[in-house]
């Protein structure tokens, strides 16, 4: 190593020379590469869901039969609540851009205001997701699981596959708003035997409906399912709820860590760390992560609720 000494002399001026690859700082570039790998992770989850959705087309539930609640509103309102959640996340993305924008102008008060609002938006989204999970886990109409683990909805013959709630089947009355009473499998089976016009249908888009005789035979060793868990759910194929918990949970974890990062940066802004450093690039880097969380939600929204 004859020229080792010469090398040592030069290294200090190599990266410190002020010329950056791609004209982006180390931290910003690494945030981009992390987001690139995270995007591939999320696409792995979503396409895996696509695989099973295509495989179990007949028993894969339709989103509008699953997510129907809206706070303080009676009746069925598919899509409205997730649309609100999307709106909340878009708004918090806008406040984040405004915070970055204020940082470029070295406007500390502006960064505090907009970053603070972004944190509020993040918590609002997390609260909405908790509400969504609560209703998903508690369930709504209830369904029957046949001996071969297939989930079937109750429906009245000739009603074009409209789902009959277990509550209505057993009590004969329309299910009241927010009712979570639990029923026994035996009561459901006897009520099914008494109502000659009730049959079973599959959860899928095609609404494959059994005849009354087929349904009677299928009900022999059936089991009532109310709500959703990892092993069974009233909406349809077991994997549907598993993917729902996993993908929205993984996204929610990202939102949560984004809020934590935002809070750390917020405290640093209040303490004047970036004012002293001379630039607010840290707000920009965390902002990239926050926008990415919004970006992933745009895809989760499409592939869980729309398509």
């Amino acid at each position: 190593m004859a020229n080792g000494a010469a090398l040592e002399q030069n290294t200090s001026s190599l990266w410190g020379g002020g010329r950056q690859p791609f004209g982006a700082s180390y931290g910003k570039m690494m945030m981009w590469f992390f987001l690139l790998s995270d995007a591939l992770t999320f696409s792995g989850f979503l396409t895996a869901m696509g695989l099973y959705r295509f495989k179990y087309e007949e028993t894969w539930p339709v989103a509008e039969n699953v997510f129907t609640h809206f706070p303080f509103l009676h009746g069925e309102h598919p899509l409205l609540f997730v649309a609100l959640m999307t709106f909340i996340l878009i708004v918090s993305s806008v406040t984040m851009v405004l915070a970055v924008n204020a940082g470029h102008k070295m406007n500390t008060k502006g960064v505090v205001l907009w970053l603070g609002l972004t944190i509020v938006g993040g918590f609002t989204f997390l609260g909405s997701q908790a509400w969504e999970w609560y209703h998903f886990i508690n369930g709504d109409k209830g369904a029957i699981m046949l001996e071969d683990q297939t989930i079937m909805y109750f429906t009245k013959a000739g009603s074009e596959g409209e789902i009959l709630s277990v509550y209505e089947l057993v009590t004969g009355q329309e299910k009241p708003h927010g009712d979570h009473s639990e029923f026994q499998t035996a009561d459901v089976i006897s009520a099914f035997g008494l109502n000659e016009d009730v049959t079973l249908r599959m959860p899928g888009k095609e609404k494959i409906t059994l005849s009354r005789e087929e349904a009677k035979a299928a009900m022999a060793n059936a089991k009532l399912i109310q709500g959703a868990g990892m092993r069974a759910n009233e909406y349809g194929n077991v994997l549907f709820a598993d993917f729902f918990f996993f993908v929205t949970g993984f996204h929610g974890t990202h939102v949560f860590s984004g809020v934590v990062l935002n809070i750390i940066i917020f405290i640093n802004v209040l303490m004047g760390t970036y004012e002293r450093r001379g630039h607010y690039e840290m707000v920009e880097k965390v902002g990239l992560y926050w926008h990415f969380v919004d970006l992933v939600w745009v895809f989760v929204f499409t592939f869980f609720y729309l398509v």
């Binding site: 004209g23 690139l36 995007a39 396409t47 895996a48 696509g50 695989l51 295509f54 495989k55 087309e57």
Partner: peptide, 30 residues
């Protein structure tokens, strides 16, 4: 420009590829 392509090309190539394979196989499994 070179940074834009560094970030977007892996996404634009890999995700449609994965999607195509998994959805085709899912339909076949059905």
């Amino acid at each position: 420009k070179n940074f834009i392509w560094t970030i977007t090309l892996p996404i634009v190539i890999l995700i449609p590829y994965l999607t195509f394979i998994l959805l085709t196989e899912g339909g076949y499994m059905n």
